[in-house]
């Protein structure tokens, strides 16, 4: 048994090493000058240089885009959790046909490709004076991710016994207090899932910010990286340094919180 475990350990580590090859290529090339890359792209860098990182940081304008991405992601998440949990509480508890219909209406949003409403939504956001602003993107993400958020919350709340809130209400609490003081704290596991899944989606979303923020000076990280790569694509070292810098924040956050992130990804979605 011991020997088998050991063998398995070796096999799994070998798989992981192979799996990490692209990451190795990414980091190695980012540490090399163009000449070194031309000579032997995949060898371990003999004299690593950080020049690529310095120039990638400034030419990709990563500083401002990191701020844009952070603001948009954080505020959207707060709005999603607030709106989503309240709505789900109602949808999970309501017993009328209409309430069920409303729930199905929300689920419809999961399958609708966003391209359908692309132009009308753009006009609407323009009319509101929100085009090319953080607020415009926040409103957009809140709306687009609500179906999934409501879906996760509703399923979770349905499995909660009704008695908690009822008991509180008999003690004289209003619906609002019962929800915020009693029910919401019980939702912590699913809130973690909602937070993480939406954060990864919003942070990495590419096409909408490309449409709505392109050329506005309010680009998010994926859009900045897209145009950065478009301009410097021949210089792999520089491009890869840019990719490393752009991926670093979310990867670091992930590594710090990996236990919770992995749990969050699966717990809301497990059987």
């Amino acid at each position: 048994m011991k020997a088998r475990t050991f063998l398995l350990e070796i096999v799994m580590i070998a798989v992981a090493v192979a799996f990490l090859f692209p990451v190795y290529a990414l980091v190695t090339l980012s540490l090399k000058s163009p000449d070194q890359i031309a000579e032997s792209p995949l060898a371990v860098p003999s004299s690593p240089t950080l020049d690529n990182f310095a120039s990638a940081w400034s030419s990709a304008a990563l500083g401002p885009s990191l701020i844009n991405s952070t603001v948009i992601t954080v505020v959207s998440l707060v709005a999603l959790i607030a709106l989503g949990s309240f709505a789900a509480y109602f949808l999970a508890r309501v017993r009328s046909r209409l309430g069920y219909g409303l729930y199905i209406l929300f689920l419809l949003g999961i399958v609708l490709p966003f391209q359908l409403g692309m132009i009308p939504l753009y006009r609407l956001i323009t009319d509101l004076g929100l085009i090319g602003t953080h607020l415009g993107m926040i409103v957009f993400y809140t709306g687009v991710q609500l179906p999934f958020t409501v879906f996760l919350y509703t399923g979770f709340i349905r499995a909660l016994p009704r008695e908690y809130a009822s008991a509180a209400q008999i003690d004289g609490a209003s619906h609002l207090t019962a929800f915020t003081k009693v029910v919401f704290p019980l939702l912590r596991p699913i809130t973690g899932t909602v937070l993480i899944l939406n954060a990864v989606f919003i942070w990495n979303d590419f096409f909408t910010p490309l449409l709505y923020l392109g050329g506005s000076g309010f680009e998010t990280v994926p859009v900045s990286i897209f145009s950065f790569v478009g301009q410097y694509v021949s210089d792999y070292g520089l491009v890869f340094a840019g990719l490393v810098l752009a991926a670093l924040p979310i990867v670091v956050v992930f590594l710090l919180l990996q236990r919770y992130v992995i749990k969050g990804f699966s717990s809301g979605l497990k059987g």
């Binding site: 709005a79 709106l83 989503g84 309240f86 709505a87 509480y89 109602f90 949808l91 508890r93 309501v94 017993r95 409303l102 209406l105 929300f106 949003g109 609708l112 359908l116 409403g117 692309m118 132009i119 009308p120 939504l121 609407l124 409103v139 957009f140 809140t142 709306g143 687009v144 609500l146 179906p147 409501v150 009704r162 008695e163 809130a165 009822s166 008991a167 209400q169 008999i170 619906h175 929800f179």
Partner: peptide, 25 residues
């Protein structure tokens, strides 16, 4: 005491944003 359904108002803000950002467009 299962009948204590929360009021419609709980779902209204979400429905509004969803309607404006997804359904109408």
């Amino acid at each position: 005491f299962g009948a204590m359904t929360p009021p419609w108002l709980f779902a209204a803000p979400a429905l509004l944003v969803y309607a404006v950002v997804v359904l109408y467009p």
